[in-house]
Design a binder for these strands. Structure first.
Length: 668
DNA sequence: CGGCAATGCGCC
DNA sequence: AAACGGCGCATTGCCG
C-alpha cells in the first residue's frame, strides 16, 4: 500500500477514569481534554499538535489528502477525535476508511495487544517510557482527587516527550507488523462499524435492578458478617472459619456448596443424610453466600459506567480477541450474561412473555414486590440481566444463533458426513450416539439419562478428551463406573466418529512437519500449515490464516506412555497477562481450527446481514444480534440470511441451521 | 496506592 | 492408543 500513513497518539487528561469508563464514555466526559497529539508522517520527524498552540492546518491537509491514521488501539484515538477534536477544536471528522489499528494486527497475529508487552515480545528496539506514562497518568489522578492538575509548561513538555517516544515505538511496531490482509481489513471495518453503533442499554432499568440488589443484599450481608465476622467475598477465610466449626470444606465452588446444601432452595432432608451434620450457623452463612455471592450482578454497575449519554455502550467487543479469531468481550463482557435461572415452567407463557414479565416487574425497583412475584429477588435480577440490552426507539432486536455449530463443523471437517447428515436432517444426534453406546434404541422421553451421556459425548469428545476428564466433568455423583466411561470414549472414537481421531492425527502431523521444515506447506484436508516469519500459520477453508507465535520443534513424551516420544512442537500464547509456552497436540489444533471455521461462518452471516439492512450490534461467538427498524424486524428473514453459508462451507458439506428470536430486549 | 497473581464464575 | 479449548471480570491478598 503506497499510501501516506500517519502514526499518531493522544495524551489526555481527565477527572474520569479511563479504565473504569472505557474509551467512549471517557472521551465524552466533559472534564476530558487533549494535552497533546504527537504524529509521525512516514519516516519523517515526529510532529506535535497542542491545543491553542499549534495550527490545525497540517493535520487537516493530511486528512483531506486521504492519509491513513495509524493508532494503537484506534478505539481511543477515534473516540477522542469524535468527542473532542471535532466539536471542541473544529477538525473535520476522519472517515473510518482512513483508520488503521496496529493493535488489531497484533491480535490477529496472536502477540500481546498491550504496546509495551508486544514491543518486548518482538524484541523491538527501545522500550516504552514507563516513567513518562506514570507521569501522564498522575495528572489525571490529581485531577480526580484534587480537582486540578499541573498545567505548567514543564509538565506539558514532559508529556509531549513521552508521547513522541510512544509514536516512535508505534511506528516501529507498524513497520514490523504491516497492514491487515484485505479480507481481515474488511472484517475489521465491519467490527468498527458495529462497535461505533454501540449496544443500547436501558439505564433506568439497570438502576432499578441495582436498587433491588442493594435492598436485598444489605440485610443479608449484615447477617453474614454478624455470623462470620467476614464478608462474602473472603473465600479463604470463610473456608477456615467453617473448618474451625467442624465443617470440612475444600473450596467454595458452586458445585461443592450445592452438594452440601441441596441444589434446590429448600433445605436438604437431613434425616436421609447422616454424613452432613452441619452447624446451623455454617449452613446459614453458606446459604447466604450462595444467594448473594454471584458477582454477575456487578455487570449492572459496569454497564452504567461505560454508557454514553445517548444510552449506548461502545467498543464492548474486541476484534480477534482470541487466537482463532473470535471476538472477546470488554467493559461489561456482553458475551457472558448468565442464562435465566428463575424456574417457572408454566407452558402458558412463551419465552418472550416470561422476559416481558421479568422486565416489567424489575422495572419497579421494589425488592419486596419482586420477591412477592418471583420468590427470590436476587435470582430475578440475574435472570433479567440480559434484558438490560434493549433496542433503540423505533427499532427491535433480532438475533440468530448457529445451532450445534461446533459439532457440525468438527464432523464435516473430519469427513464424518454420515453423522453431520443426521444433524442436517434435524434428527436427534444425542440419541444416535447414546444408541450406539448402549447398543439399543434410545428415546428422548424414555431414556433422558442415557441421552444425556450421548449429548456430553457428542459435544465433548470432538477434541480428544480422555476418560478421566470426561468422568470428572460429567459423571460426578451419578454412580457410573469408570470402565463404562472408557467404553463411551471407545465407542466415539472407534465406532461413532472414527474419522475424528484421524483428523487429530492428520492435523498434528501436518503442523509438526511444517514447524520442522520451515517454509514448506503441509496439508491435511482443507487445512494447510506453513511457517511464515516467526509464526506457524494454519490456512482455513475461507483462506484466512490462524497464527501461532514462535513455534519451536521439540520431542514430547505422550501422556499415556512416557516412553512414547514423538516429534512435536511448542509455541507461545498470551495467557494471564504474559506469553506462555504451550505444547501443541491434536485436540488443541483441531479445536483452534474448528473455532476458526465457526468464526468465518459467522463473519459471512454478519457481512450478509449488514448488506441486507440488519445492522449488527454484537456477537456471542455463534450468535449475532441485530437492531433493524421495527417494521422489518423478523428473525425468520435473519435465519434465512445466516443459513446460506459461504461457498466453501457448502463445499465442505457443513450443514448450517440457525435459530432466532425477535424482541425489544436481549434474551436467551 | 497501583500492579500482579491466584481463585472463582459467567459464557460459547 | 490419544491430552477439551477459548475468553473477561471481580475479589482478595501480597508486594513495592
Amino acid at each position: 500500500m503506497a499510501k501516506t500513513f500517519v502514526v499518531f497518539d493522544f495524551e489526555t487528561v481527565s477527572a474520569c477514569d479511563l479504565k473504569v469508563s472505557g474509551a467512549s464514555a471517557y472521551a465524552e466526559h466533559p472534564s476530558t481534554d487533549v494535552l497533546c497529539l504527537c504524529f509521525k508522517v512516514g519516516g519523517q520527524q515526529p510532529e506535535k499538535w497542542v491545543p491553542h498552540h499549534d495550527s490545525n492546518d497540517r493535520l487537516i491537509s493530511l486528512i483531506r489528502a486521504g492519509a491513513v491514521f495509524v493508532a494503537h488501539n484506534a478505539a481511543f484515538e477515534k473516540s477522542i477525535w469524535k468527542y473532542i477534536m471535532v466539536p471542541r477544536y473544529g477538525f473535520p471528522p476522519i472517515p473510518l476508511e482512513q483508520w488503521h489499528d496496529t493493535m488489531a494486527v497484533c491480535a490477529m497475529r496472536a502477540v500481546p495487544q498491550k504496546l509495551d508487552a508486544v514491543v518486548r515480545t518482538l524484541n523491538l528496539p527501545g522500550e516504552k517510557d514507563m516513567a513518562g506514562s506514570r507521569f501522564t497518568i498522575s495528572l489525571s489522578t490529581a485531577y480526580r482527587k484534587k480537582g486540578e492538575y499541573d498545567r505548567s509548561k514543564e509538565a506539558l513538555d514532559r508529556v509531549v516527550a513521552y508521547c513522541h517516544k510512544d509514536v516512535e515505538e508505534q511506528t516501529l511496531l507498524h513497520y514490523r507488523m504491516g497492514w491487515l490482509p484485505p479480507g481481515e481489513r474488511k472484517v475489521w471495518l465491519m467490527d468498527q462499524l458495529t462497535n461505533e453503533r454501540g449496544i443500547g442499554l436501558d439505564i433506568p432499568y439497570i438502576r432499578a435492578c441495582q436498587k433491588i440488589i442493594t435492598d436485598t443484599m444489605t440485610p443479608l450481608a449484615a447477617e453474614f458478617t454478624s455470623l462470620t465476622g467476614l464478608s462474602v467475598g473472603q473465600n479463604a477465610k470463610i473456608i477456615s472459619w467453617a473448618n474451625g466449626r467442624g465443617m470440612a470444606l475444600e473450596n467454595l465452588r458452586k458445585e461443592t456448596i450445592d452438594d452440601l446444601l441441596g441444589s434446590e432452595d429448600e433445605e436438604p432432608d437431613l434425616s436421609d443424610n447422616t454424613e452432613v451434620r452441619m452447624p446451623w450457623e455454617v449452613r446459614r452463612a453458606l446459604t447466604i453466600r450462595r444467594m448473594i455471592g454471584s458477582s454477575s450482578v456487578k455487570k449492572l454497575q459496569a454497564m452504567d459506567r461505560v454508557t454514553n449519554s445517548d444510552g449506548r455502550a461502545r467498543y464492548a467487543l474486541n476484534y480477534h480477541g482470541t487466537a482463532p479469531g473470535r471476538w472477546a468481550g470488554r467493559l461489561f463482557q456482553p458475551q457472558n450474561f448468565p442464562r435465566p435461572i428463575l424456574h417457572y415452567d408454566d407452558p402458558k407463557f412463551s419465552d418472550q412473555e416470561k422476559a416481558d414479565l421479568v422486565v416489567s416487574v424489575l422495572r419497579t425497583g421494589d425488592a419486596e414486590f419482586v420477591r412477592g412475584v418471583f420468590g427470590d429477588s436476587f435470582s430475578a435480577v440475574i435472570t433479567g440481566l440480559r434484558h438490560a440490552i434493549q433496542a433503540g426507539k423505533g427499532k427491535m432486536l433480532v438475533a440468530g444463533d448457529y445451532a450445534g455449530i461446533q459439532a457440525r463443523v468438527v464432523l464435516a471437517l473430519a469427513g464424518q458426513h454420515d453423522k453431520a447428515a443426521i444433524m442436517a436432517a434435524g434428527k436427534d444426534i444425542y440419541c444416535d450416539m447414546a444408541s450406539q453406546i448402549y447398543k439399543r434404541p434410545i428415546d428422548k422421553k424414555r431414556d433422558p439419562e442415557e441421552r444425556h451421556i450421548g449429548k456430553n459425548a457428542v459435544l465433548g469428545l470432538g477434541f480428544g478428551m480422555g476418560a478421566k476428564k470426561f468422568f470428572d466433568n460429567y459423571c460426578e455423583g451419578k454412580g457410573l463406573e469408570f470402565s463404562f466411561i472408557e467404553h463411551v470414549i471407545k465407542v466415539y472414537r472407534n465406532e461413532w466418529a472414527p474419522m475424528v481421531p484421524r483428523l487429530w492425527r492428520g492435523l498434528t502431523t501436518a503442523a509438526t512437519k511444517a514447524v520442522w521444515n520451515p517454509g514448506t506447506a503441509y496439508s491435511h484436508g482443507p487445512i494447510t500449515y506453513k511457517v511464515i516469519d516467526k509464526w506457524l500459520t494454519a490456512r482455513l477453508p475461507s483462506g484466512r490464516l490462524i497464527w501461532y507465535f514462535d513455534p519451536i520443534k521439540s520431542r514430547e513424551a505422550m501422556p499415556w506412555d512416557e516412553f512414547d516420544i514423538r516429534a512435536s512442537f511448542t509455541f507461545k500464547a498470551w495467557k494471564n497477562g504474559r506469553m506462555k509456552e504451550v505444547k501443541a497436540f491434536g485436540g488443541l489444533l483441531t479445536e483452534n481450527v474448528v473455532m476458526g471455521i465457526e468464526r468465518d461462518i459467522m463473519v459471512d452471516g454478519w457481512t450478509k446481514l449488514e448488506a441486507a439492512g440488519f445492522p449488527v450490534i454484537m456477537n456471542v461467538h455463534d450468535e449475532l444480534v441485530c437492531e433493524p427498524d421495527a417494521a422489518m424486524a423478523d428473525h425468520k428473514v435473519m435465519e434465512q440470511i445466516m443459513s446460506d453459508g459461504p461457498a466453501w462451507a457448502k463445499e465442505m458439506q457443513i450443514p448450517i441451521a440457525v435459530e432466532g428470536w425477535t424482541s425489544p430486549w436481549y434474551r436467551k
